[in-house]
């Protein structure tokens, strides 16, 4: 199987966020970045499918130069090669513009059997890229996938629904799947994998040269720290003090103990 897995690099989970001047994006200096966690599950699933059915795994990432690090991590874990869609101002793209760009890069790869994405990115969180890629590439899709069984050019998939419900669905290949977090346990890169990755190829394409120039369908007017919906009483002091304060509040004020 020829499998494309889409990965994004996002700010590390505990990174302190500050708005950049102009307010269009965050300040990227002084914070760490990591592979978007939902995408790590998609990558792991791609690697397992390759191990079972043979073929190759191509990691695709769009973003600034730093995104190559996420591709390198994918290569170290076992992906065969990478495609970097370079755009320093990727954050100005709307969901459709981003998907059109990634679709244009994937179209250059003939004979792709399966495209995997994570459920959403932990930065912009559009949660649309996979479904949009499927529509733009003319592929059937399924989302929030918890199990993949491939046989005879078809897939039997376990889709997660809300409130503890699931559904089995069948899809023909080629297709696109958005993977639910928790489907597997992503592996760590081994030292051998990291060494092997140095010899693997990453092809860079400049996003502006992909011929995607439709106007954006939406515009971000402002990014800001959200307003509190509730008045939160912050308790301060030593651990012993805050514990005593909290128990007192819960007994006398909230009356829940």
């Amino acid at each position: 199987m020829k499998i494309v897995v889409c990965i994004k690099q996002v700010p590390a989970k505990d990174a302190p966020l500050a708005m950049a001047e102009g307010g269009a994006w965050i300040k990227e200096t002084d914070i760490g970045f990591e592979m978007n966690e939902p995408d790590a599950y998609a990558l792991e699933e791609a690697l397992r499918l390759k191990e079972k059915h043979g073929g190759e795994v191509i990691a695709v990432s769009m973003g600034p130069e730093r995104s190559k690090q996420a591709i390198k991590e994918a290569l170290a874990k076992g992906a065969d090669r990478g495609i970097h869609v370079a755009d320093e101002r990727f954050y100005t793209l709307d969901p459709l513009g981003a998907a059109r760009s990634i679709a244009a890069a994937i179209r250059r790869e003939p004979g792709v059997d399966l495209i995997l994405t994570g459920l959403q990115s932990d930065d912009q969180g559009f949660g649309q890229t996979g479904v949009l890629l499927a529509e733009l590439l003319g592929l059937p899709h399924a989302t929030i996938i918890m199990q993949i069984d491939v046989a005879d050019g078809r897939m039997k998939l376990k889709r997660e629904l809300e409130a503890g419900w699931f559904q089995w669905v069948e899809l023909p290949l080629p297709a696109l799947l958005s993977i639910q977090s928790g489907i597997n346990k992503p592996r760590y890169a081994t030292l051998k994998g990291i060494m092997a990755a140095k010899k693997k190829e990453i092809v860079s394409v400049v996003r502006a040269e992909l011929g995607v120039d439709e106007p954006a369908t939406q515009h971000i007017e402002r990014i800001y720290v959200p307003h509190k919906s509730k008045k939160t009483e912050m308790l301060t002091g030593s651990p012993k003090e805050v514990a005593a304060k909290l128990v007192e509040k819960l007994r006398r004020e909230a009356r829940v103990l």
Partner: peptide
């Protein structure tokens, strides 16, 4: 003007539609 969250709820954004409907 639509309000949505980014960065897992750490920031909010105001978003408007561009171009012709339907939106």
């Amino acid at each position: 003007v639509f309000v949505r969250q980014m960065f897992q709820g750490k920031t909010a954004v105001d978003v408007t539609f561009q171009g012709e409907p339907p939106w």
